[in-house]
Amino acid sequence: MMSMILRRLAISLVILLVVSMLVFVATLLLPGDPAQAILGQQATPERLAALREQMDLNDPVWQRYLTWLGGLFVGDFGVSAASGGSVGELLGERIAASLVLMGAAALISVPAGVVVGTYSAIRRGKAGDHAATGISLVLAALPEFVIGIALVTVFSTTVFSILPSVTMAPPGENVWDYPAQLILPVLTLVLVVMPYIIRMMRATMIEVLDSGHVEMARLKGVPERQVILRHALPHAVAPVAQVVAIQLAWLAGGIVVVEFLFRYPGVGQALVDAVTNRDVQVVQALSMLIAVLYIVVNLLADVVGILTNPKLRTEGAR
C-alpha cells in the first residue's frame, strides 16, 4: 500500500512538471516582447537591451525555463509586466485571503453536505428527500456567478439590503476582520459545492442502508440512531471523501469567478486582472499555484481512497 501511495506521489510530481512546461511554453507563444511590455513604446533601445539582459531574455529557452522553475521553488515568481513590481509581493496577502475563503467554504459545506445527504437517504422518497434532491439538482446546474448574483440581488440590493455585496477592507487590514463581508462569497461557494456532496452522500448511504450488515444490526435491536452513526456512516466515508476532495480542488478554480463577483482581494481576482492586462508573469505564477493546490488535493483524495479501501490494500499496484 505504501508503494501505491509513493507511486501516486511520483505521478503527481511528473504531472506537475509537465504542467509547468505547458504553462511556460504558453508564454513563448505570446506575440511581442515582455521587456517592451514593461517599458512601453517609448523605451530607448539601450534600456530595452539592458532590461532584456536583466530578465535573461537573451538566454536559450530551456535555460529560461529552468531559471523560472527554480525561481518558483524559492518564491521568486518574476516581475509583473503591468505594475513592474515583484509578483511574489503582489500575491503574498492574496493567497492568505483566498485560503480563508476556501477554508470557510469547506468547513461549512462538508459537514452540512454530509448531514443533508444522510438525512435525505434516511427519509428516502419522503418530502424532505425530494426537496433536498430537487434543490441540489438545480444548484448543481447553475454557474457560480448566477448563484452569486442571485444572492446579491436578494440579500444586498433589491429585496433586503442587509449584507455587503462587495469586499472593501482598508489597505493594511485583513479581509477577515470584516466577517459580514465574507458571508455572501462563502455562501456562494458553499451552495456551489454542497450539491455534489449531498448527492454522493445520499447515493452511498442508500446503498449502505440496504446492505446486509445494517439489516443485521437493525434485526438484533440496535437503536436506529446507532445503526446510522456506528454501522452505516463509516462505510460511506471513502466514496464521499473522494467527492469532497474533488470539490475542494474545484474550489481552487471556482474562487476566480466568486472573487471577481464580490471584488474579493484574493488570488482569483488577481488572476482575472492579470489576464485582462495580459500580464504573463502573474498568470504563469497563479496558474502554477492553482495547479499545485489542485494536484495536492487530488493526491490527498487518492491517498484517502487507498487507505480506506480494503480491496486496494491487498490488490497491490495496478
Partner: peptide, 14 residues
C-alpha cells in the same frame, strides 16, 4: 491537473 477555468484563462492571456 489544471482547473478548466484556469486553463481557459491561460489560453486567453496568450
Amino acid at each position: 491537473a489544471l482547473p478548466q477555468l484556469v486553463f481557459a484563462l491561460l489560453a486567453i492571456t496568450v
